[in-house]
Amino acid sequence: MDGIHPALESHFAKYRKQVPALALTCHLADGGRGPVSVTAMVRALAWADYLKSHALRAYGTGMTAPMDRARALLEKIRAGKLPSLPFALKKIYDACWSMLTNREEAAEAVSILIEHGYMAEVAERNNASKGGRPREPRYVINPEVTK
């Protein structure tokens, strides 16, 4: 299967045995004798589709690529969900957007967008020189992105 994560591919490979086993179970549960009925096979295939949707969701949480996070953030930027003023990383993960729910995920996405020119880190004066706590980096959106 092209473009599918190896773990998911391995999971779906097991369906070659699972679907016939489900069909036989359905056939026997319906009181069938002899060859497995078409109805039982159709029911097994429907179960496999149902289980596939759950597998995609379950495996998907751990298989999000860094570029997927960057695309998700870029969609939010284009939708006007972030300010044009300099903002902290916290602004992104506090919104709890899909794939951007914590500091690490947000930092990963921002790093990629900076690398591709969609955002920039802004050098702001911090309070460290006055004995204060260093300020977290601030980011701005490239104005060309929202045009």
Rank of each mutant, 00 (worst) to 15 (best):
Met119Asp: 04
Ala109Trp: 01
Lys147Ser: 11
Ala107Phe: 07
Ala106Cys: 11
Ala65Phe: 15
Pro143Lys: 10
Phe12Met: 13
Phe12Tyr: 10
Leu28Gln: 14
Glu75Tyr: 04
Asp49Leu: 13
Leu113Thr: 08
Glu115Gly: 04
Met119Phe: 10
Lys91Gly: 01
Ala70Val: 02
Thr64Gly: 08
Phe87Asp: 04
Lys14Trp: 04
Ile141Tyr: 06
Ser37Gln: 10
His27Leu: 07
Pro66Asn: 10
Lys90Asn: 12
Thr25Phe: 15
Leu51Val: 02
Val36Gln: 01
Glu105Ser: 14
Ala44His: 04
His116Leu: 13
Ile92Cys: 09
Lys52Val: 01
Lys17Ala: 08
Thr64Arg: 09
Leu24Tyr: 14
Ala65Leu: 15
Tyr59Pro: 01
Ser53Phe: 12
Leu82Lys: 07
Tyr93Phe: 15
His11Phe: 11
Leu51Thr: 08
Ile92Met: 07
Gln18Ile: 15
Gly80Asn: 11
Leu73Asn: 03
Gly60Lys: 03
Arg16Glu: 12
Gly62Ile: 02
Asp68Ser: 15
Met63Phe: 06
Arg133Leu: 14
Ala23Asp: 05
Glu121Ala: 14
Leu56Asn: 02
Ile112Leu: 13
Asn142Trp: 10
Met99Gly: 03
Leu8Ala: 13
Ala29Asp: 14
Asp68Trp: 03
Arg135Asp: 03
Phe12Lys: 12
Arg78Lys: 14
Thr146Lys: 15
Met63Pro: 06
Tyr15Asn: 08
Leu28Ser: 00
Gly131Leu: 09
Gly132Met: 00
His27Ile: 06
Gly3Ala: 05
Glu136Gly: 09
